[in-house]
Every structure is written in structure tokens, then in C-alpha cells.
Amino acid sequence: MNLATSFWTWFGAFLTFCIFSFLYKDNPFYKFAEHLFVGVSVGYSISISYHNVLYPDLIVPLFRNGELLNLVPLIFGLCYFTRFLPKVSWLVRLPMGLVLGFGAGAAIPAVIQASIIKQVQGAILTPDVFKRFDLTVWALISLIGVICTVTYFFFSRERGKVTKVMADLGIIFLMVGFGASFGYTVMARISLLIGRFQFLLRDWLGVIK
């Protein structure tokens, strides 16, 4: 055993236990750690935003280099403050409109390219998959699965006999997919817990390397 000597490691361990104490029930220790975390994260976000964005991207170019075009994003950005001034609070919609329009416009071609064209290319049967029997079967199952899953999500018309069978098959694929995701989710949550125990046993208590 090689107990930590640093104050900060002890404080980290204390906060870890404060949060874990919620497993028993909500209590002041948990609340303290939670509120401290919120405060620190706000301060951290403001600091990084200032050092990584505001200072190098706005203050230096505008006030030191005199690049006046930067006044435009500054004015739009300042409109966010009007959110807290009831008389002119509508001005907050200006930067929101600009950013939303930009995001939506950028998303359309990107999504068509990455999630539709490429995925259709991946789903269709190319000569390569016919080179080996097992690959052919798996590719066929995948293709059927994709079509049936999409059919399941098609709610615009009442299902006929064929589309009902396809949608039912789609559910089977979806359930296997969700099962796979659940299996992986278990893995994720356990990993996070192991990580905390590694901190307590290694950094704080020093019983493992």
C-alpha cells in the first residue's frame, strides 16, 4: 500500500465518495460535489472559450490588427445578451437564424453524401460479394434487413400483406440491433466504474500499479 500524499488526490477521492454516496440516498455531500462541479465547469468553459476563441479569433484581429469585418460576428454575437433584456429580446433570433441556416444548409449535402449515397453503395450487391459463398449470404441478409427495417419505419400508408411481413422481419433485425447496442452499453457502463476504482486503488490507495 502506497497511500497518496498529494492534497488534490485526497480531494479527488473525497469527491468520488461524495458522488458514490448517492447510491445510498440523496445527501448534502452529494449535493455539495454536484454544485461544486457545476460551478467549476462554468468557470472552465468561460476560461477555455476566452483563451481559445475570444482572444485569438476576435479581440486580436479586431482590436489589434484592425480587421473591421470582424465587427459583424461581434454584433451578431452580442445579440445573445439581449435574451435577458425583455424589450429587445427578439434580437437573439438574429444570431440563431444565421447559425441555424448555416447548419441546415451545410447538413443537407453532407448527409446526402455520407448517409445516403455511401450507405446505398454499401447496401447494394456488388460483384465482389459473389466471390465467396458466405459473403454472398451475409450481403443478401444485410440487404433484406435494410429493406425490411426501412419498411418498418414507413408509416405513411396502411400495410398490406407483403409489407406487413417485411415490417415484422424488420422488427427482428431491429431487436437484434438493439440487443447488440445493449450488450455494448453494459460494457460501457462497467468500464466507467472500473475506471473510478482504478483511480481509488491506484492513485489514492496505491494498492495497484
Binding site: 455511401k118 450507405q119 453503395q121 454499401g122 444485410s142 440491433g177 447496442s181 455494448y184 460494457m187 460501457a188
Partner: peptide, 17 residues
Amino acid sequence: TTAVSAADAYPYLQTGQ
């Protein structure tokens, strides 16, 4: 990726993205 989103990456692996 985190394990939570690992299963979602498979379509992109198959296409070579």
C-alpha cells in the same frame, strides 16, 4: 468510440468510410 456507440459504427466500417 465509447462502447455505447460502437454498434452504430458498423455501417460506416462496411462502406470503408
